[in-house]
Structure formats: structure tokens, C-alpha cells
Amino acid sequence: MSRLAEVRLERREDVQIAYIDGEVDLSNATDIGAELEASVPNSVEALVVDLSGTTYLDSAGFRLLYGLRRQLNARGQVLRLVVPHDGLIREVISITGLDEAVPISSTVEQAIEGSP
């Protein structure tokens, strides 16, 4: 069976970028969480998770993102998300209030700069 989601990683100076393409739910959230956590070296300031290619996200995904934020904050690092304005998961994100806990940008470039 093909994987529900693929994680791609990219390092840009002080920022680690992770792209999640596909669907995130109970069946793969734990694995993705572990992969993301392992991807962040101590030397970076922030982890930018790009959800532009994420076609599906539910509470299992939010649990993962909240957990990731807590982990990073404990290490003095920050989590930033990229969600396009017209993305289908934008609505779900605002229902859960994730956008109030984690800075969300529309593009990776904005997220790297730390602007919305």
C-alpha cells in the first residue's frame, strides 16, 4: 500500500523546513511526529512545517503539531506553519484554534522570515 503521506526535509540556514504531502490521521500521525522531531537539529531556530501539500488533517494531526510545538519550545525553538489561504485544511485549523497557538504563514518564505 502506498503511504498516506510523505515527509520531505530541507535545511535553510537557521531554519529546518518539513513538507508534509498527503493525509495525516490516526494511522500515521505518530510516525510523522517522530520523523519531524528527529529532523530538527539543535542548531536551528525554528521548524517550519509546510502543510501546503497536506490534503487531509484531523485531530490526530493537531495532537502531533501541539506536541511538536511543546517539544520545540522546551528546547528554545519555535514551530511555524505554512498553510495557503485557500487550503482545504485552513478551516479545520481555525476550528481547533491552532492558528492562535502557532504562527501561520501563507508561504514558506514568509514563515522563514517569521511574518504572517
Binding site: D58, S59, R63, V92
Partner: peptide, 11 residues
């Protein structure tokens, strides 16, 4: 977490 799931279902 479960509260979030329930909220999502209801929304």
C-alpha cells in the same frame, strides 16, 4: 485531544 476531535465532528 478528544475534546478537539469532538469539536471537529460537531463543526
Amino acid at each position: 485531544h478528544r475534546g478537539r476531535g469532538t469539536n471537529l465532528m460537531e463543526a
